[in-house]
């Protein structure tokens, strides 16, 4: 570990924390434009987080300690996840600590705590949300891991920075197997981040919601942390996608210049990804909850197809 690795690490964490709500605001803005609405301010997510921090927290009478610590744990897990994903540079101090499998484990930890916290109050919506969230989770996790497996098989490592570095330094060749998995990854991203067609982030219609049902009992600072963590999760997933499928432009060395160059590249990627996400959300309709398994099974199938293409054609 040297100074520049540590600096990259700190920079990446801070960038993720700062940019995540902005990314969410950007997606919302694009969506509004595409749907012919007047767009909310780009800074709205920051304002609502700030507002929530100033409010008084209201806890249900029978909330246990688990309910109160869950937002901190979820936020912590998402922040550390952001530290592992190479968004700007691949030489990071924390990268030996957790590889891609541990990253998926970290996401699973966050999910489990959200689900448990939702069950803590004992409301009908809480347990309904927990059940659905865990359902989406166990369907999405295998697909995500197959995607990571393929990248690991290509680059002979499971460390995400090393995968990204390998793919970025390859001559610009399109792996057909990666094309399949990119589709799968997009579908997993939609499902895991509670976007249309699995869940609608803008709805509070009781019978269809998943993510909002989990947060129903939270208020003030706890809700702020949960919302921030959700924004971080979206940001993290986007960065995983960049690391696997469009790694070009990421700093593979330690030079400060490389890192500086990678910042606008990342911003550009995020801007495009956000617009793309908004487009997908605008073009598709929300599925019934029991169509979610089919959606995610399709994602799994695409990931497996990618793997088979790699194994059969070596591509």
């Amino acid at each position: 570990m040297n100074f520049s690795e540590l600096a990259t690490q700190v920079l990446e964490i801070l960038a993720a924390l700062a940019a995540a709500p902005l990314f969410l605001g950007w997606v919302n803005q694009c969506r509004a434009w595409l749907q012919n609405r007047s767009a909310p301010s780009l800074w709205l997510p920051y304002r609502s987080i700030r507002k929530l921090f100033y409010k008084d927290a209201v806890l249900a009478q029978n909330a246990s300690a688990l309910f109160r610590i869950a937002p901190y744990i979820v936020f912590g897990a998402m922040t550390v996840a952001a530290a592992i994903i190479p968004s700007m540079g691949t030489r990071m101090a924390l990268s030996p600590v957790a590889d891609a499998i541990a990253l998926v484990g970290l996401f699973a930890t966050a999910r489990m705590f959200i689900a448990l916290a939702a069950m803590d109050i004992g409301t009908a919506f809480g347990s309904l949300g927990a059940r659905r969230e865990m359902m989406v989770g166990f369907l999405a996790e295998p697909a995500l891991l197959i995607i990571i497996f393929l990248a690991s098989l290509l680059s002979a490592t499971t460390a995400l920075p090393a995968i990204s570095e390998y793919l970025a330094t390859q001559p610009l060749a399109l792996h057909p197997s990666l094309a399949f998995t990119a589709v799968a990854f997009t579908m997993v991203l939609l499902a895991e981040n509670a976007r249309i067609p699995i869940d609608n982030p803008a709805t509070h219609l009781e019978l269809t919601m998943i993510h909002e049902a989990l947060l129903l009992e939270y208020s003030a600072r706890h809700l702020a942390l949960m919302e921030w963590a959700a924004a971080l999760k979206l940001f993290n997933y986007a960065c995983i996608g960049f690391a696997l499928f469009v790694p070009w432009g990421v700093a593979t060395g330690n030079g400060p210049l490389q890192i500086l160059v990678s910042i606008p590249v990342l911003a550009l990627k995020l801007a495009l990804a956000g617009a793309g996400l908004a487009l997908i959300e605008t073009l598709s309709a929300k599925l019934r909850v029991f169509r979610a398994p089919e959606f995610l099974a399709t994602a799994f199938l695409f990931a497996v197809l990618g793997l088979l293409v790699h194994l059969l054609l070596g591509a």
Binding site: Y54, Y72, I73, G76, V80, L94, I121, L216
Partner: peptide
């Protein structure tokens, strides 16, 4: 790392904001 972030977040929330909270019936 996770514990560090959790502790830091906790401290920041306490330091920059407030620790007011109320108990009420479940919202649902």
């Amino acid at each position: 790392a996770v514990a560090g972030v959790v502790a830091l977040t906790f401290l920041c929330v306490r330091l920059f904001y407030h620790r007011r909270e109320r108990r009420g019936p479940a919202w649902d």
